[in-house]
């Protein structure tokens, strides 16, 4: 058993999953917004980065790590709400290109402002959890307390989101607002509020991903989330954009693909893992892995 956990394959699997959960969280956050407003938010990564930086700044002032995590999530919530209210709301009913352009513009602003305020150097949040890998009977296992925390946090968030959508009144209203806004209104659902809540929730989930990145050994820099957003986007498409579970699995697959490319092919080409996966999936199942291929009846 211990030999197995330390085998090269398991090294790659652990490292791939550790990266993959970050993609999964971003993918999940994109799916939440997509489902509630049919907007693909290109500023998602930048918003998350920004919210994490705000939290990080407080760490520098001596705030406790856990409180900073909570603070970042809170800033993320506000950010999401603000974005939907101010930037996205005027664009409902307009061609979808308009929303894409606006979120792309927002991405540009956020990264430039972050670079202006915090410079473009990498920043790292010191976590109270050790980043040192475990040893099992003298053999290295690519898991550390922090990596395990990262998995646990991601799982908790995914379960929370899934549970919220599936089992709560709020989740039901969120889903109804996305599926049939007019009908939802006729039934008394405050659809506008639901759209805002969808964006808030999504931004918060994204923020957790950015904070995990910032807490990891490589840290976070202002344009760091660009690549992560792309991987998250691919993960969401691979999963079908409608399916939270699909998005999560897609993210994990991309993390693994990148890690295996890195180990067995070329470190430079690792970022292509997602694209390769995407091309394969698009050829096999253009509607995504996890979309029920039932056409929607009107």
């Amino acid at each position: 058993m211990s030999q197995f956990l330390s085998s090269p394959i398991m090294h790659n699997i652990f490292a791939g999953l550790a990266q993959g959960v970050i993609y999964s969280l971003v993918a999940l956050s994109l799916v939440i917004i997509w489902q509630s407003t049919h907007v693909l938010n290109f500023a998602q990564g930048a918003m998350a980065m920004f919210a994490s930086y705000v939290g990080m700044t407080e760490i520098d002032r001596g705030l406790n790590y856990w409180l900073c995590l909570v603070l970042s999530i809170f800033v993320g919530l506000l950010f999401g709400g603000f974005t939907e209210r101010v930037l996205i709301r005027p664009l409902y009913g307009k061609p979808e290109i308009n929303a894409i352009v606006v979120t792309v513009g927002f991405l540009g602003v956020l990264e430039a402002v972050a670079q202006a305020v915090w410079t473009s150097t990498t920043r790292n949040i010191a976590t109270p959890l050790s980043q040192i890998y475990f040893h099992n009977q003298g053999r290295l296992v690519l898991l550390s307390p922090f990596v395990i925390f990262q998995f646990a946090l991601a799982i908790v968030i995914m379960l929370f989101v899934a549970g919220l959508f599936r089992f709560t009144d709020l989740g039901l209203q969120l889903r109804a607002s996305a599926l049939a806004p007019e009908v939802a209104r006729l039934l008394g659902v405050r659809v506008n509020r639901m759209l805002t809540i969808g964006w808030m929730l999504s931004a918060a989930v994204g923020t957790v991903a950015a904070t995990i990145v910032a807490s990891g050994s490589f840290g976070l820099y202002p344009s760091d989330m660009d690549g992560i957003l792309i991987a998250g986007f691919i993960a969401a498409v691979v999963g079908g954009l409608e399916s939270p579970v699909g998005a999560v699995i897609g993210g994990l697959l991309i993390g693994l693909a990148e890690q295996f490319i890195l180990s067995y092919w070329s470190a430079d080409l690792a970022p292509l893992g997602g694209i390769i996966l995407l091309v394969v999936v698009l050829m096999l199942r253009p509607q995504g892995l996890f979309t029920k291929s039932v056409s929607r009846r009107v």
Binding site: D169, L172, Q173, R175, A176, L179, A180, E182, V183, A184, L186, L187, G188, V189, R296, R297, V298
Partner: peptide, 27 residues
């Protein structure tokens, strides 16, 4: 004021019970 729109407005992607629960939020 309950309005059953043209074409009924049943949300197909939700279950029967979920559709009904939605109706209850108005009061």
């Amino acid at each position: 004021v309950a309005h059953v729109p043209e074409g009924r407005g049943v949300i197909h992607e939700l279950t029967i019970e979920e559709n009904l629960r939605l109706g209850a939020f108005a009061s």
